[in-house]
Design a protein around this nucleic acid. Structure first.
Length: 719
DNA sequence: ATTAAGACTTGGAAAAATTTTC
DNA sequence: GAAAATTTTTCCAAGTCTTAAT
């Protein structure tokens, strides 16, 4: 039931696989291609060709384009503002030193450790890596593990200094406790009732449990959606006893409000718990984390990412998901496959249960898996991003992207040439690749229709997702893109493209229905095969990584002012980060408290302005007095006032920076790019170069994830 | 060659924890 | 010292790409 490529849905029904129709279409298209070629030759007689390799490259700014595009300018809002923050004062104001309180974490081991490493590591992981330390597993650091607040500071495993395993083998030892199962259902107290048609109705345990899933979500928008309601009700009824099925016929007659209230109260009560109680809960959670949250991998204790099975509940798809509201079943040990090493202590299933299977597959990285019942896909328990297995892969990803940097000019020249290919397939591939490169679109795999929300990426774009404007707002050849991408996030952009691209798009849309594929001859597989041929390891997503990272590097270079204080530099960093987030279309919904919090900030700024003015007047007065009296006391007073004014101005400047940053960040989500697209070594090099502490840009978790980069990048790192 | 299954990365929202403010 | 604001962590869905099966 996949949305098939080349299939023309619409008026005429398509025969078996639509072969005949496709053939015809193909011939027509090839003819069109020829027609265009003739036209092209006529137009380009006068040496208007622009295939010179040098010109293909990216300009200093963002402009990947060449001549034509430069003339046209950019419509695409990249958010790469160049302007500097004027009001930012010089000299670094007091870095809001936080009270020590009773918190000691700040000074924990990891903070100190980083000084040790200075050496840059440039080798590609996965390729021959020199062995830097002989100790394989279980290396004992002579530094005694310190205790702090009862927490141990562990010796970090510097896996990046070790030799890489042979290809495909992910580990030699893997031992863990298996997943931690979601707590069993606790029945509602007697006095919390469900009502049907106004009358209390005692539900069976299973039915009641599912009712609570819905009740908990009552004030969520989901429950107002018809699809959600229908899916829920359908699945709920399936689990009812026949008596219940008999009675409960309509969701509208179900009253969950008492149940809802029960859970609201419960969560409030939990929040209001006395300190000791909370402490106790925390300790229990810590114990579970201690027991189940780690595994032993090749002699090292590694943190697991998600060691708990997902609890049962109602499926919440994103966007217009056809399955929203369906019942997500409870995962039982009988559903779970365990993966560990043969000679390890094999995890015990919970009392009275068995695992579905125990296997010993060292070519994969997961510890346990199960099949989820909504989409019938696998879910895995895997390691935390701080682990070797994840870190190494991450490093490798950036190395692939850096290799793309070396050949991207040729690749661009190649796809530009292919815009005139005689083969429709190749032409489509070339235009798609241009989008992927220029606009950082995702590849766009085919999806099963009706199983998921209707979202697209590049290769799955449909005619209805673009509009072609020969002229728009004083620009030529503007493509207006409007579609729902991953997670049903809208992508909307008006972008001036080169004439040849524009003509191709006209060709691709000709005689098609809005719901037809724009690139009907193209699949991600075909595209990626081609890319693989151009560079080892190259796939569509590498372009996103590459363009994100290179953009950060360029923007940091362009925006950072070494005269700025740390706050000012951080604003530059955030802006560079933001440019990337905009490029990748990482959006968030405006935080609910945004307007209010902005207002508060503005009030503060106004108050501070007033203070500055007052201080100015005071200073004036003091100066006048000095003028009159010329005595030492008056002079000292002037100095004092000057100092005060300066401090206030700095404070004001900082507030302004904060406000600017906040406003610009309103709808932009920085997290994903920071975590997944930006080579951390770029940021670390920047920190070192400009004297910004790494903690200012990466929090503890992030520093753990990027430990490899922190250890190996120095200030001259170049992506 | 095509489809399906499998493995792993990427994604924003929501919950929880922490810090700031009053 | 509690409420509010902000940051961090958790959660789990939804992509990409590879591999296996047919």
């Amino acid at each position: 039931k996949k949305h098939k490529k080349g299939k023309v849905e619409g008026a005429e029904k398509v025969g078996k696989k639509g072969i005949k129709k496709e053939k015809v279409l193909e011939e027509e298209k090839e003819q069109e291609v020829e027609k265009m070629e003739e036209e092209e030759e006529r137009e380009e007689g006068a040496g208007g060709e622009m295939e010179g390799k040098d010109e293909v490259g990216k300009g200093s700014g963002d402009g990947k384009g060449v001549k034509e595009e430069e003339k046209l300018g950019e419509t695409q809002s990249t958010g790469m503002e160049q302007e500097k923050e004027e009001e930012e004062g010089k000299g670094d104001g007091p870095e809001k030193e936080k009270k020590k309180k009773s918190r000691k974490k700040k000074l924990e081991g990891e903070e100190q450790e980083k000084e040790e490493k200075k050496r840059e590591e440039e080798e590609t992981p996965g390729k021959s890596r020199k062995r830097k330390s002989k100790e394989g597993g279980g290396e004992k650091n002579n530094k005694k593990a310190r205790k702090e607040e009862g927490k141990e500071v562990e010796n970090k495993w510097k896996w990046w200094e070790e030799e890489k395993k042979e290809d495909g083998v992910k580990w030699t030892q893997l031992e863990h406790r298996g997943p931690y199962f979601a707590p069993l259902y606790e029945p509602l107290p007697e006095d919390v009732r469900f009502y049907y048609a106004g009358k209390p109705l005692k539900l069976s345990l299973a039915t009641e449990e599912i009712a609570t899933f819905y009740a908990k979500m009552l004030d969520h928008e989901y429950t107002t959606k018809e699809i959600f309601q229908n899916n829920f009700f359908h699945d709920w009824r399936k689990e009812m006893t026949s008596e219940e099925q008999e009675i409960i016929q309509e969701l509208a007659k179900c009253d969950f409000s008492e149940i809802h209230k029960y859970f609201v109260d419960k969560s409030e009560a939990r929040k209001a718990l006395p300190k000791e109680e909370k402490q106790k809960l925390k300790e229990e959670a810590d114990k579970i984390q201690e027991e189940y949250g780690y595994c032993i991998l090749d002699g090292h204790r590694e943190k697991i990412g998600n060691f708990k099975t997902e609890p049962p509940g109602l499926f919440r798809g994103r966007g217009d998901h056809p399955k929203m509201g369906m019942l997500k079943k409870r995962i039982m040990p009988e559903d779970v496959v365990i993966n560990c090493s043969r000679d390890s202590k094999i995890p015990e299933p919970p009392e009275g249960h068995k695992w579905k299977e125990v296997r010993f597959d060292n070519t994969v990285t997961w510890l346990a898996s199960w099949t989820e019942n909504i989409q019938n896909t696998l879910k895995y328990i895997m390691l935390n991003p701080s682990s070797k297995l994840k870190g190494e892969k991450d490093w490798q990803k950036y190395e692939v992207a850096r290799r793309l940097k070396d050949v991207v000019h040729e690749i661009r020249a190649r796809y530009r040439a292919d815009w005139k290919s005689k083969e429709m397939k190749n032409r489509q591939r070339a235009v798609a690749l241009y989008f992927i490169d220029k606009l950082a679109l995702r590849a766009g795999n085919e999806k099963e229709e009706g199983e998921t929300a209707d979202t697209v990426g590049c290769c799955s774009l449909r005619v209805e997702h673009i509009r072609l404007h020969p002229r728009l707002d004083g620009q030529e050849h503007v493509v207006e893109l409007d579609f729902l991408g991953k997670d049903s996030i809208r992508y909307y952009n008006k972008v001036a493209v080169e004439k040849q691209v524009f003509k191709n798009l006209q060709l691709f849309t000709k005689n098609k229905d809005p719901s037809d594929d724009l690139f009907d001859r193209l699949t991600t597989t075909f595209l990626n095969k081609h890319l693989q041929h151009l560079m080892d390891g190259l796939t569509a997503k590498v372009f996103r990584t590459y363009n994100a990272s290179i953009t950060l590097q360029e923007q940091l270079k362009a925006l950072t002012n070494s005269e700025d204080n740390v706050a000012g530099k951080l604003l530059s960093y955030n802006r560079a980060n933001r440019a990337v987030a905009v490029l990748c279309n990482h959006q968030r919904s405006v935080p609910k408290t945004f307007a209010k919090s902005m207002e508060i900030l503005q009030t503060k700024i106004d108050a501070k302005k007033k203070q500055v003015e007052e201080a100015q007047q005071e200073l004036k007065k003091a100066e006048d007095e000095l003028e009159d009296t010329k005595d030492a006391k008056a002079e000292a007073n002037v100095e004092k006032k000057k100092k005060l004014l300066k401090r206030l101005e700095e404070q004001l400047a900082r507030l302004n920076v904060q406000a600017t940053d906040k406003e610009e960040n309103k709808q932009i989500a920085l997290g994903t790019s920071k975590l997944n697209y930006l080579d951390p070594r770029i940021s670390i090099a920047w920190c070192k170069k400009f004297g910004v502490p790494i903690e200012k840009i990466y929090n503890k978790t992030q520093r753990e994830k990027f430990a490899w980069a922190i250890a190996m990048a120095n200030e001259d790192f170049e992506f």
